[in-house]
C-alpha cells in the first residue's frame, strides 16, 4: 500500500516519516524511532502497556495508527524526564510499584496524566484511573501507594 507522509513531534523533537497506513503508533515509536520503552502487551486495547501521551492526553498507542498522529505532540516514557527520574518514576521505585517492569511505562504515563488532572486523588480514584492498566506481578497495592506518594511529591514540588 502507498506510504503516507506524516509530521509530528515526539518527546519535543520534530519527526517526519513515510509510513504504511497499517503501522500503529506503538510500532512506529518502537521500530522506526527505536523508542522501545513503550511496550506492547495485548495489542487490542485491554492491557494499557502501550499508553503514551498524545497532545497531553493518555492514549493506547496500539489503538492509534501512526498516520492518525499527523501534527500531534507525542510523549513517551523516554521523554518524561531529561534529568534523572520524574517524581512519578521515583515514587514507583521507592514504593516498589513494579516487579518485572513490563507494565510500568504505561502505568507511569497513565498516572502522570491522571495526576495532572487530579492532583490530590483518593485511593478509590487512583484505582479507577489505573483500572485500564494490567499488572501481573504486583497485585496493584504498591502501584496505588506509588501514585499516592507521587501526588504528594508533585504537590510539594509545585
Amino acid at each position: 500500500m502507498a506510504r503516507v507522509s506524516i509530521g509530528l513531534t515526539v518527546n519535543g523533537q520534530a519527526v517526519s516519516a513515510e509510513v504504511e497506513p497499517r503501522v500503529t503508533l506503538a510500532d512506529f515509536l518502537r521500530d522506526e524511532l527505536g523508542l522501545t520503552g513503550t511496550k506492547l502487551g495485548c495489542e487490542h486495547g485491554v492491557c494499557g502497556a502501550c499508553t503514551v501521551l498524545v497532545d497531553g492526553a493518555a492514549v493506547r498507542s496500539c489503538l492509534m495508527l501512526a498516520v492518525q498522529a499527523e501534527g500531534a505532540d507525542v510523549l513517551t516514557i523516554e521523554g518524561l524526564s531529561h534529568n534523572g527520574l520524574h517524581p512519578v518514576q521515583e515514587a514507583f521505585w521507592e514504593h516498589h510499584g513494579l516487579q518485572c517492569g513490563f507494565c510500568t511505562p504505561g502505568m507511569v504515563l497513565t498516572a502522570y496524566a491522571f495526576l495532572q488532572e487530579r492532583p490530590d486523588p483518593s485511593d478509590e480514584e487512583i484505582r479507577e484511573a489505573l483500572a485500564g492498566n494490567l499488572c501481573r506481578c504486583t497485585g496493584y497495592q504498591n502501584i496505588v501507594a506509588a501514585v499516592r506518594a507521587a501526588a504528594g511529591k508533585l504537590a510539594a514540588a509545585s
Binding site: 500503529t24 487490542h44 489503538l63 492509534m64 495508527l65 492518525q68
Partner: peptide
C-alpha cells in the same frame, strides 16, 4: 470511516475487519 478507532483498530489488529481503505 475511521473515527476515534477504539473499536475499529482492535478489529483490524485481530484481522476481524479487512477494509481496503480507511477514511479518516
Amino acid at each position: 470511516p475511521l473515527a476515534g478507532g477504539q473499536s475499529l483498530i482492535p478489529l483490524l489488529n485481530l484481522r476481524l475487519a479487512r477494509p481496503s481503505l480507511l477514511v479518516d
